[in-house]
Amino acid sequence: MNTQGVVREMRASWAFIVRNFNLIKRYWKWELVFFVYTIANSITMGFIGKGVEAFSGAELDTSYLILYMLLGSILWGYLSILFEIVAETVAWERWEETIEYTFMAPIKRATHLLSVCGFAILYGILRAGLILLVVSAFFDLDLSKANVLSATGILAVASFSFIGLGMVAAILPLISPEKGVQVVHIFQALLLMFSGVYYEITVLPQWMQNVAKFSPATYALKGMRSAILDGKGFSELWSQIWPLLILGLFLLPAGIYFFQLMEQWAKKRGVLKRSG
């Protein structure tokens, strides 16, 4: 690609980011509603952590448990927003009937998808930070050991895999205008179940633990918990970083490839436009 081509792709990328920002600005009341919903979920998880001592009767490190559950909930909120924005790349545009105009624009699909994902990551991180800020008012959180820098580093490395998974999720509304978005939720639920969002994966049956090894969320959660709860530095988290790098290296190009493959399929079947 020549310089002019790169500039064109960069302009297109920026256009997607600005458009998504404008859409969020215009729908801010709904964003607020979903933000409150996520906070309610996170606070509930925090209280479950706090309540364990009461119903188990054992003396436990409640502060650790609260933070353990909250981190699961916040990362889950981050993943959910990422999947939603990426999956809606197709679903929202189909609903607005703009999909054909976007898909006939002379840009690379990778630029299109990566820009939407880039926006989703920035928005997701901002949202996760705000949630942590709000829920910390409800609990006496001990963040003295927290290594925020290495937690951010883990999130950044994990994002490559999450983008790849998001693109795979975006295929679902592309191939099924009627049920695709709902299936994305099933996909998320499976990730939730296998990745140890609210528990250590060691409590899972062996075959589920084997599946969990292929989920980037497993390593992201473990790494973030180690950074925040135990204050581990980035270099100490290598056992989480390398699987994330390998998964990212595979999932990111695979996501783009499969999306393009299914776009061709949708163009053959004529399902690009149909509204669900």
Binding site: W14, A15, N22, A105
Partner: peptide, 15 residues
Amino acid sequence: LSAIENLLFAAGIHG
């Protein structure tokens, strides 16, 4: 979105 936001988006994705 406004007309200008829509038009700027269309312009952007055409480079």
